[in-house]
């Protein structure tokens, strides 16, 4: 209620039309990006069907891994069950680096590092979430608060000895040999993906409560130490 009200006020104040796309990015550029980078696997728009990837109509506000008739990776299904919902924020994080948000996703896409390009693509996707009349549950279009990590955070070299001790806490659940029996493997991750994933939990972008709690008390050095240690594991 409050949210709707404040949005209405905002729209009046700036005199914009209620087309959400303009507030996110350049939807026309997004359409072009979609055609070049996404269309091989995903359909969107009237009559869109699941192909290699699920159809993307009304993706905003949808629970991850929930398109009927599409078989998701175990990772994506688990993230959906854990509560991951597609919003401007989570989609942006996913597009930036799919495996950092959903480690075992089958989406074989390296990611889109340029925030402006992502904004454009999201504006286009949002258009296909907004266009149908019956989707009042869509998330608000406020620009996301950026989860981007400063280059110096990503560049931190962790102390692997400290990482080894900190990692002992991970091993209560995550098996050292990397086997996945209901709890995902954390070995063999690229160092940077590990750091991004932990910060995503710390900032509560990723939904899992145990991981949010574990990550929340780790500082930048400690996350780097863990990444450094796990990088040494085979």
């Amino acid at each position: 209620m409050t949210r709707r009200l404040s949005m209405a006020v905002l729209l009046l104040a700036f005199g914009t039309t209620p087309g959400a796309a303009e507030e996110i990015g350049d939807a026309a550029r997004g359409a072009d990006l979609f055609a070049r980078q996404c269309q091989a696997c995903h359909q969107i728009g009237e009559g869109a069907k699941n192909r290699v990837g699920p159809q993307l109509n009304k993706i905003f506000g949808r629970r991850a891994g929930s398109v009927e008739g599409f078989t998701y990776s175990r990772s994506m299904a688990r993230m959906g069950a854990d509560g991951l919902t597609w919003t401007l924020e989570t989609l942006d994080a996913y597009l930036a680096n799919p495996k950092a948000l959903v480690s075992g996703t089958r989406m074989n896409y390296r990611g889109m590092p340029d925030p402006e390009a992502r904004a454009a693509l999201l504006a286009y996707l949002r258009d296909w979430s907004d266009r149908p009349q019956d989707i009042p549950e869509s998330e608000p279009t406020a620009r996301k608060t950026d989860p981007d990590l400063a280059p110096e955070v990503l560049a931190l070299k962790g102390d692997p000895d400290y990482g080894e001790y900190l990692a002992s806490e991970c091993r209560t659940c995550h098996q050292a040999d990397g086997s996945d029996q209901g709890i995902p493997s954390v070995t063999g991750w690229p160092e940077e993906d590990f750091v991004i994933a932990m910060h995503a939990y710390k900032q509560k972008l990723r939904p899992h409560p145990v991981m949010q709690m574990m990550a929340s008390r780790l500082n930048d050095e400690e996350i780097a130490a863990l990444a450094a240690y796990f990088a040494t594991l085979k």
Binding site: R171, T172, C173, Q175, A176, D180, Q181, G182, I183
Partner: peptide, 12 residues
């Protein structure tokens, strides 16, 4: 997840 935890902690 609890099944995974059991496997994890007993291995640990």
């Amino acid at each position: 997840e609890s099944l995974g935890w059991y496997a994890g902690i007993t291995a640990d």
